[in-house]
Amino acid sequence: MRRLLLAAAALAAMAGAAAAQDYPTKPVTIVVPFSAGGPTDTVTRLVAEPMSKSLGQQIVVQNVAGAGGTLAAGQVARARPDGYTVLMHHIGMSTAPSLYKNLPYDPLKDLQTIGLVTDVPMTIIARKDFPPKTLEELVAYVKENKDKLTYANAGIGAASHLCGLLLMKAIGADVTTVPYQGTGPALTDLVGGQVDFMCDQTTNTTGQIKAGEVKAYAVTTKERLKSLPDLPTADEAGLPGFEVSVWHGLYVPAGTPEPVVQKLNAALQAALKDENVASRFAELGTAPVAAELATPEAHKERLSSQIELWRPIIEAAGVMAK
């Protein structure tokens, strides 16, 4: 036993002392702040496979769900800055400082960006017997009937919540929100006609749209999607400039040595060029970001601008976890 312990300790010491130049010498963990099987988890697992090939080490995906993703982010922010603990997070990284008072970490100071991964588009959808036929009609209808309608979201800080807030701001109405615990139940009630409309990621909505179970009005990206070619963009359908996407990015704890960051970034860049990743992303209704966005600088820029974008919107909506 003693010998075993000694051997184990020696092995661990070797790993710990390994220079950043040799990185990685042991499996790398990517922490996903949401449960397995969700959109973020899927994106992570798809990217992890080719990344592990270029790093020459196994990548372990660990799901640390809780507190809207802040639990995992806090855990990674406090982890050793050696590049073996990596975080995949989405747009929620930029809204957490406005949503959570006393956040135990500062997204800009305690975490180092590696690069953006993908921008998942969102769709504006409604129950199938909802009267408006186009987005323009929807805007008018919502304004007119704002006291009678309800719209769903998947919980505080969820992508659907953020998109809904932005939509309300764009329409200029304040419709009653019905929050749910996750997308599943929200979509159930929308398909069942219990609530009127919502805005959610294509990963969740494409199947329902194609089957005609929900009425789709627009996609929230600049260009139309290959998977839903008939669906206009919000910009062309009556909400000029309305654009929102669930952007995903990779992070390591601040203080991680530069060569390690470089290596992770190179692995990410290679993964985004991988054909399998591209085709799987397309099936999800999304695409890898352009190479110039998959850099630490572009990612940091996106993070800080998004923090500023969301702060006033969230404060105006009066949702804050005290």
Binding site: A8, A9, V60, Q62
Partner: peptide
């Protein structure tokens, strides 16, 4: 289960 058998506290 993705748990390390020996953790970071042990190496000197």
């Amino acid at each position: 289960v993705t748990l390390p058998l020996v953790g970071p506290w042990l190496p000197v």
